[in-house]
């Protein structure tokens, strides 16, 4: 047991915070909100509190309920699992420190420290805070988000690259498919029917991935196919330039620059296609 904990920048005493969790038992089931009072230590985050609730699933009314369900993995904001709406804003739960999300030290109750947790609204809810982001992955497949290498055989090194170019690609390549940018996008709407996915807006992350792979010498061999998707229904033209995506991206990926770059590529692609006849 550590005798000393690292100096937490904020409060140093434990306190109680009320959690209002939007719950749903499964697809098509009604939603309800349950309240839990959680003792919070300095440095705690949303996931550590959810873990506490799962081990003690008793609401403030003293009613025993089922442990809430949520997705998590790395707990260091790199896997993209734990996206949810916290106090109405989408973000990663694992990096949401309680002291930052709810600095109020007033005890729970009306006007006191309350944190609401709500699932992402742009994806079908599986249960409680778990949603199904399959559409996101399907879109990565549609834009052929890969470098078409010849195989795993030993064929020498890849192309050399300037440090600046690497830095640009690296920034885009850190996208962890969390979906924050989609949740906050006014143009990305919930679509539960897989048949409709291929014509609904792909969202900022997917546009940005297309730009990433178009920017790789070998990846660029699939550029025309990617641009066909991006110029079609649900492509980059559906973006309304509200620029919410770039503000909520936890990885601070320059999504609006990717959108501009995709716009340019699609424009050039259309002109080329017009004059080459295909």
């Amino acid at each position: 047991m550590p005798t000393a904990t690292p100096n937490a920048p904020t409060s140093s005493r434990s306190r109680t915070v009320r959690f209002a969790i939007v719950r749903c038992d499964g697809p098509g089931k009604p939603e309800r909100t349950e309240l839990f009072d959680v003792p919070v230590e300095p440095g705690a985050n949303i996931i550590s509190c959810l873990q506490w609730i799962a081990a003690n699933p008793v609401t403030i009314e003293g009613v025993r309920t089922t442990p809430p369900t949520w997705d998590s993995g790395c707990l260091e904001e790199v896997c993209g699992s734990c996206t949810m709406n916290i106090n109405g804003r989408v973000r990663q739960a694992c990096s949401a420190l309680i002291d930052a999300v709810s600095p109020s030290t007033t005890p729970p109750g009306p006007g006191g420290a309350t944190i609401t947790l709500e699932p992402m609204r742009k994806f079908p809810v599986v249960r409680d805070l778990c949603v199904d982001r399959a559409r996101f992955f399907r879109n990565l497949e549609r834009i052929k988000a890969w470098v078409p290498v010849d195989g795993t055989y030993s064929l020498g090194a890849g192309p050399t690259e300037s440090p600046d170019h690497q830095a640009t690609r690296y920034a885009l390549s850190t996208c962890m498919t969390c979906g924050c940018c989609l949740e906050a996008c006014p143009q990305f709407l919930r679509e539960d029917k897989p048949e409709a996915w291929d014509t609904s807006f792909v969202g900022a992350a997917v546009i940005s991935q297309a730009v990433l792979f178009n920017d790789h010498p070998t990846g660029a061999t699939l550029k025309p196919q990617r641009l066909d998707v991006l110029s079609g229904p649900g492509g980059v033209n559906d973006c309304g330039n509200s620029q919410n995506c770039v503000k909520v991206c936890p990885k601070e990926i320059p999504l609006t620059e990717s959108i501009g770059a995709a716009g340019r590529q699609v424009t050039v692609h259309a002109v080329k296609k017009f004059f080459s006849g295909r």
């Binding site: 109405g88 906050a184 006014p186 143009q187 509200s242 919410n244 503000k247």
Partner: peptide, 14 residues
Amino acid sequence: TGRANNARYPFQDN
């Protein structure tokens, strides 16, 4: 094709 969400994301651009 869009659904405004300014209450949650009251950014200037939005």
